[in-house]
Amino acid sequence: MKIASRFLTRPDAVRTVMVSLDGEPVAARAGDSVAAALLAHSGDASRQSGKGAPRTAFCMMGICFDCLVEVDGQPNCQGCMITVRDGMVLRRQRGLRKLDGSANA
């Protein structure tokens, strides 16, 4: 079940770009951070913690690291510090990452 976004998006003239989230196409406002785009898309968790708890972007200013997300194959990227680009491939992380970037099963 997809949880509705916890935010209202102001309708305005900003261009949109397309990214993918776990393989699903998602429209995002050009210029938004990855974390903002994910918050606009849904109210779901954007990752699971090491103990499997749902988390999503929190501070939006680069200090809390709760917005960690895989961006174009790079794990543990701070979603709030990266601007969305057309064609960006995003994946939610479930649990912590190993040194080689794979899931710490």
């Binding site: 935010f7 209202l8 102001r10 305005d12 938004d32 903002a36 918050l39 939006m60």
Partner: peptide, 12 residues
């Protein structure tokens, strides 16, 4: 955090 989004993203 949402204040930052209001400044940067137009999310309310």
């Amino acid at each position: 955090a949402p204040q930052i989004l209001m400044k940067t993203s137009g999310l309310l």
